[in-house]
């Protein structure tokens, strides 16, 4: 029995995003428009659609790295309060990012002078867990994802693409969160590594953690996702990327 299943965690209501490029004569480029979906605790929603359909932009908008022009992104906190991620204050977003909303980006972005173990342990230490415990849990997670122990003390920027991606996933999920956004978590992984990642995601779902992920492989979607949201030209008014108007 999944914990907290059927309680909504996020409700995206009609969000739209347009980029205005002031450096290019204020050209407007549509990111996505009128997107609706909701996710319950313990569920994984897969975002699908062709490249350029706006999948990553939606994840970034939920994380507030992108600002949306219209619509609401209602986040239901565990204390039953509801915040609109599209309009709440920056300080509120920072608080939510610390404990409630996590983001596994497509590519690892860290400083070159940090080891794999430190990179993974850091988000946990930020929540107040001791350094020793954090490093121990980080090593455990990296081993589970199939990273060789001899690599633990080396900068992950020297790793292969697939290894970097796994370090990035470990870094994104080590600290407990209620909602995790995953931007193509298995894109550059071989069959075996991908399997490890998917089984880890299944464990997270069992713990009641909700996820929104971008996936391309139908088999992986079938295995991991509870539902899918397909970005097509139908639920967006125009094909993508579209230049709406040039001022």
């Amino acid at each position: 029995m999944k914990k907290n299943s059927h309680t909504k965690i996020i409700d995206v209501q009609g969000i739209s995003k347009v980029f205005t490029l002031h450096e290019r004569d204020s050209t407007q480029v549509s990111g996505f428009s009128d997107v609706h979906f909701s996710v319950n605790r313990g569920e994984l929603l897969a975002l699908t659609g062709v490249s350029g359909a706006g999948k990553s932009s939606i994840l970034k908008s939920i994380y507030r790295t992108y600002l949306v022009q219209s619509g609401k992104i209602l986040f239901h906190r565990s204390d039953k309060s509801v915040v609109d991620l599209a309009t709440c204050t920056e300080s509120q977003v920072l608080q939510l990012r610390k404990r409630e909303i996590g983001f596994v980006t497509q590519f690892l972005k860290i400083l070159p002078r940090i080891s794999a173990l430190q990179a993974v342990a850091a988000p946990l230490m930020e929540t107040g867990v001791s350094e020793q415990t954090s490093l121990y849990l980080a090593a455990d997670l990296l081993s589970r994802l199939g990273i060789r122990e001899e690599l633990f003390h080396i900068s992950p920027l020297t790793f292969s693409g697939g290894e970097q991606q796994r370090v990035n996933i470990a870094r994104g999920i080590i600290a407990p969160k209620d909602l995790i956004l995953l931007d193509e978590p298995t894109a550059s992984l071989d069959e075996q590594s991908s399997d490890r990642v998917l089984s880890l995601l299944e464990d997270l779902k069992e713990k009641g953690i909700a996820m929104i992920g971008i996936f391309h492989d139908r088999k992986k979607i079938k295995r991991a996702a509870d539902k899918t949201y397909e970005l097509t030209r139908k639920n967006n008014e125009k094909p993508f990327p579209t230049i709406l108007e040039a001022a």
């Binding site: 002031h22 450096e23 507030r64 790295t65 600002l67 920056e90």
Partner: peptide
Amino acid sequence: EYGLTDQILEDPQHPYTQLLVS
């Protein structure tokens, strides 16, 4: 412009911020 640092760098809104980031 005032915003989260990642937003300022990845989705700058004001023409001057866009110039700065570019």
